[in-house]
């Protein structure tokens, strides 16, 4: 077990987006979250690194770090929580004034204050891993969406996080560019990265996940292996959702 979360709740004003969620994230495993828009899946992901601060919930990590969001949490604790994870955004959010290489080196150099030579090697290795070593001196606007997202993945990996979070990493991409990003994520799964992925790509979720979690209306409706949830769902709401996605007309 890498992280265990109990009783997670989050509201935006009067709108309760997450209602009493329990999740376990296993080390070296891939957890995919699916569900209709507005189901709370992105909020759940963003709570995992406190990009949205939960109202309630107890986070317990394998190294003993424990955070209870009903109590006051210090900046140091939030920082510790954030250091554990890297995040890949739907809209990439690359730094437009920095080259692909600088996007990747920014965290290790400025935040972790590692040595320049060491970081250069790390960044070149990561950009090679995502297939972009020849593009490392280009600015984000000179790259396609798929290439930008792969730089985004390399930037997150550069911090050497224990957990990788993906927020609909292919939703903003043209259909023909989705494959190259999914391939990189599959490679990471093969390397046993611990990952949580919010996605609409059911085929991909089926291939890459160890566990799939279906959310609706702020609750986890159903969870299990991809086989269980995607092929033979028990809950009516899951069936309806899958039906709608597989036969949109």
């Amino acid at each position: 077990m890498f992280l265990s979360i109990q009783g997670l709740a989050k509201s935006f004003g009067a709108n309760q987006v997450l209602k009493d969620i329990d999740v376990n994230i296993e080390k070296g495993k891939v957890l995919s979250i699916i569900g209709p828009s507005g189901s709370g899946k992105t909020t759940l992901l963003r709570c995992l690194n406190s990009l949205e601060e939960p109202d309630k919930g107890i986070f317990t990590f394998n190294d003993g770090l424990s955070l209870d969001f009903e109590k006051k949490i210090s900046k140091q604790e939030i920082l510790k929580l954030r250091q554990k994870s890297g995040m890949v955004f739907q809209s990439y959010n690359l730094f437009p004034h920095k080259t692909a290489f600088e996007n990747v080196t920014e965290g290790p150099l400025i935040v972790q204050k590692r040595k320049k030579a060491e970081v250069k090697e790390l960044a070149e290795g990561l950009l090679e891993k995502v297939g972009l070593k020849d593009k490392m001196d280009l600015y984000p606007h000179q790259l396609s969406g798929g290439q930008q997202q792969r730089v985004g993945i390399a930037r997150a990996l550069a911090m050497e996080p224990e957990l990788m979070l993906f927020d609909e990493p292919t939703s903003a991409l043209d259909p023909e560019l989705i494959g190259e990003v999914l391939t990189v994520i599959k490679d990471l799964a093969r390397d046993n990265w611990t990952m949580v992925i919010v996605t609409h790509e059911l085929q991909f979720a089926a291939e890459v996940s160890d566990e799939v979690l279906f959310m609706d209306g702020g609750y986890i409706v159903e969870q299990g292996t991809p086989e269980q949830v995607l092929k033979s769902p028990k809950e009516e709401r899951t069936k309806q959702f899958l039906q709608r996605i597989l036969n949109p007309a």
């Binding site: 995040m87 955004f89 690359l94 730094f95 920014e106 965290g107 400025i110 935040v111 930037r155 997150a156």
Partner: peptide, 20 residues
């Protein structure tokens, strides 16, 4: 999203402001 990206790579708000 620029603030968020900076924060998720571990920057403080001051560093994010200055660098990003």
């Amino acid at each position: 999203g620029q603030w968020e990206a900076a924060i998720t790579i571990g920057m403080s708000r001051t560093t994010a402001l200055r660098r990003i």
